[in-house]
């Protein structure tokens, strides 16, 4: 399987650190997300089995103002891979963190990969 998110390199400057293991790949139900606590940050991690790809973004919904993003439905809008907030259904691009409906809102994105069956995040 492919690992980290290529598009991320440009949008996220200067990654400080190491890859941190947060869970096993098989903790993730295909096509859904879960939330991990990494350096006291809530991170939403999604696995698209159709793309065989992992995504990681901030778990905080900046519009709904609650830690819920990992519970959203993932899918596509045109060519963009997105998650819909479970509160009010705004779409966030899983590769860039942009909110499609509201330019001024975005969520952070994090590099994520699978290594030896483990999900790893850089933060």
């Amino acid at each position: 399987m492919t690992t980290s998110n290529a598009a991320l390199a440009e949008s996220v400057p200067e990654q400080s650190g190491e890859w941190m293991t947060v869970c096993a790949m098989n903790d993730l139900v295909p096509g859904t997300g879960l939330c991990a606590l990494v350096n006291q940050q809530q991170v939403a991690i999604f696995y698209s089995h159709r793309l065989d790809e992992l995504f990681a973004i901030g778990n905080y919904d900046p519009i709904g103002k609650a830690n819920v993003m990992s519970r959203g439905i993932i899918g596509s809008v045109g060519e963009r891979v997105v998650v819909a907030s479970p509160l009010y259904k705004e779409h966030y691009d899983l590769r860039t963190g942009e909110c499609l409906e509201s330019e001024e809102h975005s969520v952070p994105v994090y590099p994520v990969r699978c290594a030896d069956g483990q999900v790893q995040i850089q933060i």
């Binding site: 698209s48 959203g72 439905i73 993932i74 899918g75 596509s76 819909a84 259904k89």
Partner: peptide, 10 residues
Amino acid sequence: TGLGCEICKP
């Protein structure tokens, strides 16, 4: 086509 979305999936 595509990956689906929060409309068609539910």
